[in-house]
Design a protein around this nucleic acid. Structure first.
Length: 221
DNA sequence: GGCCAGGACACCA
DNA sequence: TGGTGTCATGGC
């Protein structure tokens, strides 16, 4: 095990000890996880929950119903999640992709080797790398590490990666350093988000990441 | 009232 | 190919 692997494992265990198991993703079904992954793009999860509740109340949280809804009606239902016009289109792009390519079945989507599924997901307009990896990991139970803005902030401030590192490079850093494990990747990303919410918001004088053993130089909190 | 949140894409030089 | 603008609500 190299130095980075040891460090990443140590950070993981510190986060787990600090925050406890996160039990992600907060969705009842794999399909709901997919919808949540799209709705949460650049948006607070609390707002996403409201949008999903609206979809459930309208009994349209399924492939066929979402595909058949008028865009304006769907946008109105997901309004609390923000970017509602954009996201209504992205949701319909996704469910129509499922219908055309996989008979509306997530089982079919996840049947192929996951690297192939990832490439396929990235062809869907509105699904970028983070959303694709979230869908793979949390809906498909595939060992694809999810990185996000918090991951970049935390691990660049710890000096492990450059601040300007790209998504794929940062993902590769974790994927090539850590053993491939769905459960491990699931918990790790969730813990990073939990920590990021508390300590990594940009604010004057604070660089975040003040987690005991893994503290940055700002000395706050 | 301003800032930020579990991004992605179109457009332009 | 890399930088910039756009999409938008709700909580603090």
């Amino acid at each position: 095990m190299n130095v980075n692997a040891t460090l990443l494992e140590e950070i993981y265990h510190t986060l787990l000890k600090t925050y406890g198991p996160q039990h992600w993703w907060p969705g009842e079904t794999p399909f709901e996880v997919c919808i949540g992954a799209i709705l949460t793009q650049n948006t607070n999860w609390g707002n996403v929950e409201k949008a999903i509740a609206n979809l459930k109340a309208a009994a349209v949280l399924n492939v066929a119903a979402l595909a058949d809804l008028q865009p304006s009606a769907l946008a109105e239902l997901i309004r609390p999640a923000g970017y509602f016009n954009v996201k209504a289109d992205r949701l319909q792009q996704f469910v129509r992709f499922l219908q055309v390519q996989h008979q509306g079945s997530l089982d079919s989507l996840f049947h192929a080797p996951w690297q192939q599924t990832r490439t396929e997901l990235l062809t869907v307009k509105g699904i970028g790398p983070e959303t694709a990896d979230s869908i793979l990991l949390y809906a498909g139970q595939k060992p694809s590490f999810v990185v996000d803005a918090y991951t970049r902030r935390i691990f660049s401030r710890l000096g492990l990666v450059p601040e300007e590192i790209g998504y794929d490079q940062l993902r590769d850093f974790f994927m090539t350093t850590l053993p491939a494990s769905t459960a491990f990747f699931n918990e790790y990303h969730a813990l990073i988000v939990q920590h990021g919410k508390q300590y990594c918001r940009p604010r004057p004088g604070c660089k975040g990441c003040c987690l005991a053993r893994f503290c940055c130089s700002c000395q706050c909190e």
